[in-house]
């Protein structure tokens, strides 16, 4: 049985098509990433799967339970961490965890082994109000609360947004461990660099799935020649590269620009082109595609 099946799900808000004919399957025990920019439809899809919203058309099921018909059953078995921090800010860390354990009919002690790794990190602050925690700690508390009833499927909507780099790495480490315990995890993120940490990913843009595969396969399918370019006149470089005849696409990528070309490039040709435009300290070398490059390519097609 699949942990999650989505079959032709569409959802409109007024005139905006939030989701357009989504089809997706997530294997049991997988760590599945939904990657896409803000407004791509990630949260809407999460809300449909967590029985919070009704789709206009299509069907979806979680652990074989229909999200519309069997919503009561689903609500007992899933764990959900919304994109916005949604715990009680005026309750302490411990009170929050206790509350969520109790309303799911369990206790902290009963499932402590599941949350221990995460909870020990915030336990020293257990008498602090949740509203006074730092971003990383809030996120750990929210994950603990979503886990405390031992869910079979865990839905994490942009758990790392607004969290510092170190905490983000720790967080993904925790997800790895949870996966090892057999929990299916569906996680969404706008950060492309997190995609490679998933077993499989789906790229989503404007309510449509662009590609579903493992991160390595997606990268391997990238076919065009790709170069990283950097000069002393970085802000002018983007415009200049776009006027280069062989250029296909140019996007900023960290401190470099990533350039794809219509055919294999004579590197000197471009160097001379740039020198004529007044650039100096030109760095140009072929580079390996990342998920972000794939995403950009899929988006422009």
């Amino acid at each position: 049985m699949k942990a999650i099946t989505i079959d032709g799900i569409s959802k409109k808000y007024g005139k905006t098509q939030a989701l357009d004919q989504i089809n997706l399957e997530v294997e049991e025990g997988a760590l599945f990433g939904l990657i896409g920019p803000d407004g791509a439809g990630k949260t809407t899809l999460f809300r449909i799967l967590t029985t919070l919203l009704l789709a206009d058309t299509g069907q979806a099921s979680v652990t074989g339970l229909d999200v519309v018909k069997d919503y009561k059953e689903i609500r007992k078995t899933i764990g959900y961490m919304p994109g916005r921090f949604s715990l009680y800010q005026d309750l302490t860390v411990e009170e929050n965890l206790n509350f969520f354990a109790t309303i799911f009919g369990t206790t902290i002690e009963e499932n402590y082994d599941l949350v221990r790794d995460i909870y020990v990190q915030i336990e020293p602050f257990k008498n602090r109000r949740a509203g006074k925690l730092s971003g990383g700690m809030k996120q750990k508390l929210a994950l603990s609360c979503a886990l405390i009833h031992k869910p079979t499927v865990l839905f994490l909507d942009e758990p790392t947004t607004g969290v510092d780099v170190v905490s983000r790495q720790e967080f993904w480490e925790m997800l790895r461990k949870l996966k090892e315990k057999g929990i299916t995890i569906l996680v969404s993120t706008p950060y492309m660099d997190e995609a490679s940490l998933c077993d499989r990913i789906a790229l989503i843009q404007k309510g449509q799935l662009l590609s579903i595969d493992s991160p390595t396969n997606i990268i391997q399918q990238f076919s065009k020649p790709l170069y990283a370019v950097k000069t002393n006149l970085l802000h002018q470089l983007l415009g200049d590269l776009r006027t280069f005849p062989l250029t296909d696409t140019v996007f900023p990528f960290g401190e470099y620009l990533h350039l794809t070309t219509k055919q294999q490039l004579e590197e000197d040709q471009l160097t001379i082109f740039l020198q004529n435009k007044g650039h100096q300290k030109i760095q140009l070398h072929p580079t390996k595609a990342t998920i972000e490059d794939c995403f950009m390519e899929l988006m422009t097609n």
């Binding site: 967590t50 029985t51 919070l52 009561k72 609500r75 007992k76 899933i78 959900y80 919304p82 916005r84 921090f85 949604s86 715990l87 009680y88 800010q89 969520f100 309303i103 799911f104 009919g105 609360c145």
Partner: peptide, 13 residues
């Protein structure tokens, strides 16, 4: 407003 209703709804309550 604080989004906690979302969590309460996704619970067996």
């Amino acid at each position: 407003e604080l989004g906690t209703m979302e969590l309460l709804l996704v619970s067996p309550l």
